[in-house]
């Protein structure tokens, strides 16, 4: 089969899956939050409310597009795109499963690309998502939006440091920046070789830092409803708002996938080293799905932090801990 065609098929399947998963996640967020509050959640559109995201999408399309007075129209339009695109680009390097053979056609490894510097790509592109938030906040010409954007930028930069340092620990363990190599190094059939057991502290810091990085509860200072009336996207409506939403949920899904890949061995099946690809894919979905659920679970459990507490946690707790963790990891690797 034409290799170009194979890449095209893989890309469209993975991006379709990502957008579908993001849509499903908006539904899951509402369903789980409802269940945790002893409610039913959306159950009118389709069976068990499964078509609710579709209804939401149609609603978004038919809403009126507003641009506030005095706002910079170009940057106002650019911001949602800058928020959604980096979040969706990062999924390109996530390895979902091993070699896929379907209908007698060898599709190769199930990921859009196995980049040599996959982790670096992910961190670099992921770091760009902060622009959507800041520029959106600034371009809205509203003080609440501006405050939300400022907070988001400070928060995301602070936690990106810890996040990168933790990723470095895992990279040092494997000796590769390729996410597939990191997965394969953990795919020994023995779950104890997963990084979560050799790097428990790193795992903990990473999971918490992903919450801050994606602006989710309990660190959602960018959109803090009670003080900032939704922060950077207060002034947005219609599909522009939907793009911000899509960006947020895609970022969550990518972060869940990344946590599963870095610490839980990605698609490696416990006690079955060379499982067929669909079992690997199922395992991956189970692991990533758990972390995606964790995002929702924590959101509907914990109250919001205060902003100074957030900064204190990021700079005075996580950064030293991450540095110490990196130091110990390096020492152990060089001595072993």
């Amino acid at each position: 089969m034409n290799p170009f065609l194979i890449i095209l098929i893989k890309t469209s399947v993975i991006y379709g899956g990502l957008i579908g998963a993001a849509a499903l996640m908006t539904l899951a967020e509402r369903k789980f939050s409802a269940w945790m509050q002893l409610r039913h959640g959306p159950n009118r559109v389709g069976p068990w409310g499964l078509l609710q995201p579709l209804a939401d999408g149609i609603k978004f399309i038919f809403k009126e597009e507003l641009c506030p007075d005095g706002a910079n129209p170009w940057i106002f339009r650019l911001a949602p795109i800058l928020s959604a695109v980096p979040a969706m680009l990062t999924v390109a390097v996530i390895p979902f499963a091993g070699n896929v053979t379907l209908f007698g056609v060898d599709f190769g490894n199930l990921s859009i690309t196995d980049l040599d510097i996959g982790v670096l790509f992910l961190v670099a592109i992921g770091g760009l998502s902060v622009y959507g938030v800041i520029l959106g906040g600034w371009a809205s010409n509203s003080k609440y939006s501006l405050l939300g954007g400022l907070r988001a930028s400070a928060q995301m930069i602070s936690y990106e440091l810890s996040l990168i340092l933790i990723i470095l620990c895992v990279v040092a363990m494997t000796g590769s920046l390729d996410l597939r190599a990191i997965t394969e190094a953990q795919n020994t059939g023995n779950p104890l070789s997963w990084n979560v057991f050799s790097q428990p502290l790193a795992f903990l810091i990473f999971v918490i830092a992903t919450f801050a990085e994606t602006n989710r509860h309990p660190f959602d200072f960018a959109e803090c409803e009670p003080e900032l009336v939704a922060g950077f996207h207060t002034e947005y409506s219609s599909m522009k708002f939907a793009l911000f939403f899509l960006g947020e949920y895609c970022a969550m899904i990518v972060m869940a996938c990344l946590t599963a890949t870095l610490f839980l061995g990605g698609y490696s099946v416990p006690f079955w080293e060379d499982a067929p690809w669909f079992i690997q894919l199922g395992t991956f979905f189970a692991k990533a799905g758990f972390f995606a659920f964790l995002f929702i679970w924590v959101r509907w459990t914990l109250p919001r932090f205060r902003f100074d507490q957030l900064m204190h946690l990021g700079w005075k707790v996580f950064l030293p801990l991450a540095l110490a963790n990196l130091l110990v990891t390096g020492a152990v690797i060089s001595l072993a």
């Binding site: 002893l38 409610r39 903990l204």
Partner: peptide
């Protein structure tokens, strides 16, 4: 962390309680 886990176990348990919303 222990307190967070305690809170999360409470919310997780609530997920399976009977719903009180009237349809």
């Amino acid at each position: 962390l222990p307190e967070i886990l305690r809170g999360m176990s409470i919310t997780f348990g609530k997920m399976f309680k009977p719903k009180i919303t009237r349809q």
